[in-house]
């Protein structure tokens, strides 16, 4: 296996398999078919993840174990009943967001998935090549929920970017993103603000580009969120959306059942689709994922259309 070699990815995966050998088969298959381009991105992401972990690599690995465990429980519910278990933001706050111990492990686990789950890695590649690289020179960008900062740091260090702003409704999340960007060595100026997307933009606050990555599925009112995003964009402005279909997780509320449904949903918010790509669950083909109702990350670049 190539990841047995030196490097950050080797470090991450070998520690994972030492502490939790049950992932051996999954990890072997995930990286067995990696081509050179994906391999380089995986190594780059692994370096960033190791930097974000500080000296707490083992905690990161335990977080990944934790996320696999809780996802398995949610998947059981999804297969039995065909729905996500939680329905409201209040449920998610009670069970997930307000539980600091739970959230810390969950966030660490999520960070590991960026390189261990091929659909997450592919979404980052799509973001860089199809969205960031095609934004107009000097573009002003807003990211909703920058979280661990892996996307935000790519925007903030893009020499073609004019300004980069992040909004999150949680002060804890904003502080977390700020620390992450420091660890990632982002020195160019950026803005991180405690703001609720649903409050909408200020009177003269408009952006050339908005990023909405893995946000909609957490919302009780995703249609309203999309309306606010549209209001935040200049006419002709570009939106990056990453929303998963059939993706049971403890804090996922908004269930989309097909890639077509995901595209229709974004179009219904007043957007034209410039480009879309579908990335199936790790170690499954797109056909298998569709047939078995497995997770597919739907990544879209959309453009604000005028009615």
């Amino acid at each position: 296996m190539r990841f047995a070699a030196n490097g950050a990815l080797g470090l991450l995966t070998s520690r994972l398999l030492e502490l939790s050998p049950r992932h051996q088969s999954f990890v072997s298959r995930r990286f067995a078919t990696c081509e050179e381009k994906e391999w380089r991105l995986c190594e780059e992401l692994a370096e960033q993840i190791v930097r974000l972990a500080d000296d707490e690599l083992d905690e990161l690995v335990r977080g990944y174990d934790f996320i696999c465990e809780i996802h398995r429980r949610e998947y059981i519910h999804f297969r039995r009943y065909g729905t996500y278990r939680l329905k409201t933001a209040a449920d998610a706050a009670r069970e997930v967001y307000n539980d600091t111990w739970y959230m810390e492990r969950y966030m660490r686990g999520l960070l590991m998935t960026e390189v261990l789950w091929s659909n997450h890695t592919a979404a980052i590649d799509f973001y860089q090549r199809q969205f960031l690289a095609r934004n107009p020179p000097g573009y002003e960008l807003l990211e909703i929920g920058p979280g661990h900062g892996l996307l935000f740091s790519r925007s903030a260090t893009d020499p073609r970017a004019g300004s980069v702003t992040g909004w999150d409704l949680s002060p804890v999340s904003v502080a977390h993103s700020r620390r992450a960007l420091q660890k990632l060595g982002v020195t160019r100026p950026y803005e991180l603000q405690v703001r609720d997307l649903l409050d909408g933009p200020g009177a003269d606050e408009r952006f050339d580009a908005v990023v909405l990555s893995e946000v909609l599925e957490h919302m009780e009112e995703p249609q309203r969120a999309l309306e606010r995003v549209r209001a935040s964009l200049l006419p002709g402005g570009r939106l990056y959306v990453n929303v998963p279909v059939n993706s049971p997780a403890p804090d996922h509320l908004f269930l989309l059942r097909s890639t077509d449904e995901a595209i229709r949903f974004v179009k219904s918010g007043g957007f034209g689709i410039e480009q879309a790509a579908f990335f199936p669950a790790t170690n499954y083909s797109l056909g298998e994922a569709r047939q078995q109702a497995l997770t597919i990350s739907v990544c879209m670049v959309a453009t604000r259309t005028e009615h």
Partner: peptide, 19 residues
């Protein structure tokens, strides 16, 4: 045989097995 120790038994097939 154990979940995760072979290519055939992953978390998706685990639920198919249970059903």
């Amino acid at each position: 045989l154990a979940l995760g120790h072979s290519d055939c038994w992953d978390s998706v097939r685990h639920m198919s097995l249970v059903l």
